[in-house]
Every structure is written in structure tokens, then in C-alpha cells.
Computed example of a mutant assay.
Amino acid sequence: METETKRYDMHTHTRASDGMNSPSEQVRLAGERGLAGIAITDHDTLAGVKEALEEGSRLGIAIVPGVEISTRAEEKDIHILGYYPDIDNEQLQQRLASLRATRDSRNDLMIARLQELGLEITLDEVIAAMGRPLRSGESLGRPHIADALVHKGYARDLRDAFDRYLAEGKPGYVSLPRIAPLEAMDWIREAGGVAVIAHPGLYGDDRLVEEIILQGRPDGIEVYHSDHGPDEEKRYMALAMRHALIPTGGSDYHGVRQGEVFHGELGSKYVTADIVQHLQEKAASRS
């Protein structure tokens, strides 16, 4: 990545989904890290965006409204990032609420499966481990369950909880039917936003990634990510160039949980102002 003064981390999570910081805290941390801006891309919710926009305006930090939508293709979880959607779009809000309902059902099933394994854990204990009430529009995810497992002594740390129970293929993992990546892209574009394939390197299937590109025609692909090494960055930049996609990037920062930074530190992966401007212009062309 070319180093410029203005850096933008385009993939961050707040406690509106499974991050640890409030949106305001996230914006303040971005300022401390010398970032010009960040995207708020919580899972299946826009609940943290307005607070971040207010704090960003106060501090002079650019906030990119965003969301990360959970989808499924060929038995793999595929995430689609949406930038600059109309956050007041009622149809999008209703659609995201339906996804959170699916996520809630999945949480219930994962808790039940863990109980079948002999682990004494309840949803109330998962919420209690958060240390605060769950607010409207917020969603629970596997990291919250992992936290509770650590608090209950069933895992040493977050990584251990995933490796033993919650990662795909492990005994506590549950997958429910989800929308297809192409549908998520349509939702984002219909709300005036820009659709981007998140962290393609995590799927372990570049054939599937390219098929999604050919069928869905996303606007961009996340080239730079905390779990992408130099080889992945080179490969996905070539893919972006081949299909005329905007090459985006971000840390996927979730905050510090159980003493561990999940994915990467805020600002460790970023794009420069020209990429952000390209995304803005693409979204503006849909309004």
C-alpha cells in the first residue's frame, strides 16, 4: 500500500455488533491513531453509525457509513460490505432486522448445542458477560458466546473458545440458511450504497470468489485485510484489476477482547483518500 498522510480504515466493528468499543470510542481511537477516517461496518446492523457520525463531526474524523452483511454460498459464509447506503432507508433497515432475527435463532441453537455437550451456559450469561444491556438494533455474535465460555472457565481465551467449540466445523458451530451474496449486493445498491466482497482470503476458494464477482458484479473487493498476507494482497489486487473493482481495505478491528486484538489493530490496514473518493462517487451516482 502506498503511504500517504490521509489513511482510512474501511473495516471496523463497534459494540453495535461484536466489537468492544462504543462508536464514539472507536472514533476517538481513530483520531489517536492518526487516521483521517474510518468506516463503521457492524454485522447486519447500522445501529452504531449515527453516534459515530456525530463524534466524527466533533473531532474532524471522516466517518464512512457502512454495514457487513452475512450471506451464504456453496456452504461457506461470505460477507458483503456495504459503504454509503442511506442509513435511514426503511427497506434496508427491515431487511437487516430480518438477518438479526436469523442471527438470534442461530445463537439460541449454538447455546443449546453447547448445553448438549455438557457446558452450563445460558443466553442470559452471554449478555451478562457483555457488562451492559443489549440495545435496540444491536446483535450478538460468536465472540460474545466465546467471552461467556472464557468467563465460565470452559476456554482459556477467545482463540481457544473458537478452536474448541465455535469455529466452523467445531461441535458448537451452527449454520442457518442465509441470503445469497448477490441478494446482499442488491440490498446495498438499492439503498444507494456500494457493495464490496469482504476478506476473500478467509474463504479459501478463489474460484467461488470469482464466480460471485461474475454473477453479482460487486463494486469492489477487500484487498487489504489483517488476515491477508502479501501473497493474498497481490492476488486480490490482480483480481480487482481484472474485473475493474475498487480495491478496498481495512483492519476488521473488533477491539481488545480477553487481552487479544481480534483480526487486527485499528489502522493496521487502510486505504488512501483516492479510494474513499472513488467509493463516494460510485455511491453518489446511485442517488
Rank of each mutant, 00 (worst) to 15 (best):
111 I>A: 09
167 A>P: 01
91 Q>P: 00
145 I>H: 07
128 A>M: 05
62 A>V: 11
151 H>Q: 13
163 D>I: 00
121 I>M: 12
150 V>W: 05
56 G>D: 03
61 I>E: 00
88 D>T: 06
121 I>Y: 10
125 E>G: 06
69 I>H: 03
119 L>H: 12
134 L>D: 01
135 R>M: 13
155 A>P: 04
169 G>Q: 11
78 I>E: 00
161 A>I: 07
78 I>D: 00
126 V>T: 05
134 L>K: 13
71 T>A: 12
169 G>R: 11
105 S>V: 01
57 S>R: 15
88 D>H: 14
105 S>H: 10
80 I>M: 14
173 Y>V: 04
52 A>Q: 03
57 S>V: 00
65 P>K: 08
69 I>F: 02
103 R>V: 08
163 D>T: 06
74 E>D: 14
51 E>F: 04
60 G>V: 04
87 I>N: 02
136 S>T: 11
152 K>G: 10
58 R>H: 11
60 G>N: 07
126 V>W: 02
122 T>L: 01
135 R>F: 10
55 E>A: 09
85 P>W: 05
160 D>L: 12
51 E>N: 06
108 D>H: 13
81 L>D: 01
170 K>R: 15
79 H>A: 03
140 L>I: 03
95 R>Q: 13
79 H>L: 06
121 I>D: 07
134 L>P: 04
147 D>K: 14
122 T>V: 04
163 D>S: 13
112 A>G: 13
130 M>A: 12
76 K>R: 15
92 L>P: 08
151 H>N: 12
162 F>H: 12
95 R>F: 00
171 P>Q: 04
166 L>A: 09
103 R>S: 12
115 Q>V: 11
96 L>E: 06
56 G>I: 03
84 Y>W: 13
70 S>P: 02
136 S>I: 03
139 S>C: 04
112 A>V: 00
87 I>F: 02
119 L>R: 12
119 L>I: 15
89 N>R: 10
157 D>F: 10
172 G>C: 09
74 E>P: 00
74 E>F: 05
133 P>Q: 10
82 G>V: 08
